[in-house]
């Protein structure tokens, strides 16, 4: 399949916005490791932007407690199109350890992230290894190209 310059450029320079939605901060540390020398993500042209308006990839970590749930949606809407969202870590995908054993909803958790925003790529792990996050981002790029 031939790709236009537009589609190529999208995959060549994705900028990431990291949204921390509760959780234990472990995924955040692994994400920081992704941008540190050992798993340098900048070799793929990926940059970490602290500004939703500049970003293409919305990377969420954490189970999204009730207090942060509406804000998460609002920040997601601030990303200009085209955009993709990655749920990083078990908490973001299902709620992880914050779920109750009897499958009833936890009183403090506003959802797994999929309830709040449309998710495109799932990166399981608690925390996911940096390579796993990189693989997730690579999958997200394939989606981003065709947005």
């Amino acid at each position: 399949m031939r790709l236009g310059l537009k589609e190529k450029a999208r995959a060549y320079s994705p900028w990431i916005f990291h949204a921390h939605a509760g959780g234990c901060n472990n995924c955040d540390i692994e994400l920081a490791a992704c941008f540190a020398p050992r798993f340098d993500l900048e070799r793929m042209g990926i940059q970490l932007r602290n500004n939703p308006r500049h970003a293409d990839i919305f990377l969420v970590t954490g189970p999204a407690p009730k207090q942060i749930a509406p804000i998460l949606r609002r920040v997601y809407d601030q990303l200009p199109n085209p955009k993709v969202a990655i749920a990083c870590g078990s908490c973001a995908i299902t709620g992880g350890v914050y779920n109750r054993d009897d499958k009833k909803p936890n009183y403090a958790i506003g959802g797994p992230v999929e309830k709040l925003i449309p998710i495109d790529v799932l990166v399981p792990g608690c925390p996911p290894r940096p390579e796993s996050i990189i693989q997730g981002i690579m999958l997200a790029l394939e989606k981003l190209r065709h947005r």
Binding site: A11, G45, Q78, P80
Partner: peptide, 27 residues
Amino acid sequence: SLRGTLGVTRLFQPLYDIIKLLCKESL
């Protein structure tokens, strides 16, 4: 193994940033 997604070289990285941003919606 990554050339399908990432192209051959990143020498024109700032140019790709600019093209990508040009094709995005502005809020």
